[in-house]
Design a protein around this nucleic acid. Sequence first.
DNA 1: GCCGTTTTCGGCCCGACTGTTTTCAGTCG
Length: 577
Amino acid sequence: MSDQRVLAKEFEIIAALLEISGANAFRVNATKKVSRVLQDFEGDLHAIAATPGGLEALDGIGKSSAEKIRQWCDAGTIDELETLRSEIPPGLIGLLDISGLGPKTVGRLWRETDIVDRAGLARGIEDGTLAALPRMGAKTIANIKDSLEFAEQAAERTSIGIALPLAELLLEELGSLPGVNSIEYAGSLRRGCETIGDIDLLATCDDPAPLIETFTQAPGVTKVLASGDTKASIRLKDGIQVDLRIIDAEAIGAARMYFTGSKEHNVKLRHLAQARSLRLNEYGLFPDDGQQEPPQQRGIAPIAAATEEDIYAALDLPFHPPELREERDAIEIPPPPLLTLADIACDLHTHTTASDGHLPIAAMAEEAMRCGYHTLAITDHSRSSVQANGLSVERLLEHVAAIREVDAATPGIRLLAGSEVDIHADGSLDYDDDVLAMLDLVVASPHAALRQPPEEATSRLIAAVSHRHVHVLGHPTGRMIGRRPGLEPDMRAVAEAAAKHGTALEINANPSRLDLRDRHVRIAMESGALISINTDAHAAAHFAFMRYGVLTGRRGGLTSEQCINAWQADRLLAWLD
DNA sequence: GCCGTTTTCGGCCCGACTGTTTTCAGTCG
């Protein structure tokens, strides 16, 4: 893990310990923000720490945090963290993740009981220690017990590849109920995040009660977490939480904006609203008359509420698509026109039964035509990928001939004979130049040695993108979300080399990969590198992964101009030549 | 702890729901 990622975790721990100790909530928030800034930071942490004022120039990092970061760079520890650790049992941090337990309660456990970790909590529930605390009734304790058991076995976040199809299924089922006028998803799912904490649904309907009832009693619901007049939360049997909110149709824009987030984007919007003597909440943008009671409860008409566009316009801001509403996205700057799924006209990285795919060439061509593509590249594995049945030079030559044969026999789509060539640890490729030269398209990808140090990874990938026969750098880091971190190269250096040599960087659209990731796409855009979004399809169903790649591209600010999959066939072919 | 077109002090987003409590604290998103 890179230094800034390790340090981001340290600040996360500081924030959690401060929270338990009862520190000022704004100080806790500020510390959490430092963690997020470090998490997102791309560049050389030690270099920026050594530059006077360098750290302080980052939004959210002030003098005090900069000092701590420099201390960590020099000594490998932070005094404040060591002090906190010596005072507060670290096992308490694991209690903050249990739904229903917040900082106040965990702080109480620390000061007033002998419960210092999850095992202690389980004991305290049984032996009555918990029940002795104020405001701890039977129901609260039962909820905590349930959350504790759930937290012990649940995965942290759900892949968008699981959450999005599930959400679409829910929309179909709930949307067909009588009296439901509209239903849609919001939240991190709508922003296209690679993993989803829970699914947020927004509905407009004639009568909320029957919808809430159907929702909370649906098959697959293992627990009803909340059920009110306008909001309900359930947990499904696979552990995913779904929140449903009932919205007034006139205020759907404000609700969309509010529940899509991100939280940080909303906070920025509220700040700007305040500066204009306005008040923004999930019911609309209102004039701020200084009264405490929410304006919508006093019959005050909103200035804007029906659409998100109205609200941005009323704040004199450009519209931001959901994918560009993260903390890192500047709010005043108009976003570029983003690539859409409809722009995608080809897939340039797919596999067949020749290596480890499930379909023969002709069947893959059929699927690509169903997607409306003008071109499909067949790129089976190279010889080093033994586990994936990689092709020897001899088998590759036969395969190329077979691809050209199917291409000639299949009007309506152009098939490219390519290869996904292994990039060896030293940056050399798995086939000789004369072999690569006869291919229509070369995707070069790292598959092994994915734990090599960042400097080696950087030169390895720069060597690949600089190679005269390489068109696309496939899944550049080799990461698998939640399973392995992959390479951590200096992505700006790789992107600059790619831009210089006219090589495209891939967004591998498989939802387990999404590699490049969103923040790397941003760097590629800034460096002027081209992007190629490919599904790496090994089966018919994998062609549908394209949308996850497009979402990731959009989160990085990708335009159709800079994405070679959006180009017309002749332009693409000219570029390949 | 951070920040500044109300600037070096005094703020820091806002509402729903639950459970325990008789008016609201704590948690969540």
